[in-house]
């Protein structure tokens, strides 16, 4: 009881002298948010949206360490083949055909090749001789699908092929 009276008396005595800051100090929180913002911006994939594998596609894991560069992107899912995010053929159709060339893929690849050449000429250069294509294949696809895709791309003017993989931790 006595202790409580002493404390309340002390509180009364100091209440006139101590001025607690009235506003909330946001400076330290701002520092944290600024760091977080820069970290998130730095974590973005530089290559753009088309380099991100489509949902449902699991890339194979690998110890490869080559960074990807901007290129035509062909995604091979378990059920369909996509070029730059657009579905162009189903895997069952591809496997049903006898030949090695996938028709719709060849058309799209040739159109992309012509577009690349036109851009190069407009910029004052020569048509591109070596064109790179990145294949984002699902880890469970069979080699017979991959072989047809690679062969078609090679025949359509994309001899340089990069296989996209997930880097092992």
């Amino acid at each position: 009881m006595r202790i409580r009276r002493d404390r309340s008396g002390r509180r009364r005595r100091f209440s006139g002298r101590v001025h607690a800051p009235s506003g909330l100090s946001l400076t330290s929180l701002m520092d944290i948010l600024t760091c977080l913002l820069f970290f998130v911006l730095k974590s973005f994939v530089a290559g753009g949206e088309s380099t991100v594998p489509p949902p449902g596609l699991t890339l194979p894991s690998s110890t490869a360490d080559h960074a990807q560069t901007t290129s035509l992107v062909v995604a091979v899912q378990k059920d369909a083949i996509y070029v730059s995010g657009e579905r162009i053929a189903s895997v069952s159709e591809v496997l049903g055909e006898d030949g090695m060339v996938i028709g719709p893929l060849a058309q799209r690849a040739e159109a992309a090749r012509d577009q690349m050449d036109q851009l190069a000429v407009q910029r004052g250069g020569k048509p591109v001789e070596s064109r790179l294509v990145t294949i984002q294949g699902d880890s469970d696809i069979e080699f017979r699908v991959l072989r047809k895709v690679m062969y078609t791309l090679d025949q359509s003017g994309f001899p340089d092929i990069a296989l996209a993989v997930l880097k092992k931790a």
């Binding site: 701002m30 948010l33 600024t34 977080l36 913002l37 998130v40 911006l41 974590s43 973005f44 994939v45 380099t51 991100v52 594998p53 890339l59 690998s62 490869a64 360490d65 080559h66 960074a67 990807q68 560069t69 990145t134 072989r147 690679m150 062969y151 791309l153 090679d154 001899p159 340089d160 092929i161 990069a162 296989l163 996209a164 993989v165 997930l166 880097k167």
Partner: peptide, 26 residues
């Protein structure tokens, strides 16, 4: 602004480390 911007960036960010194997056609 930051509180709106950070969740938006976090949702659209890709944290997978994608690498490539360069090779020749079969």
């Amino acid at each position: 602004v930051f509180i709106v911007l950070i969740p938006m960036l976090l949702m659209s960010a890709v944290f997978m480390e994608i690498r490539v194997i360069e090779m020749s056609a079969p």
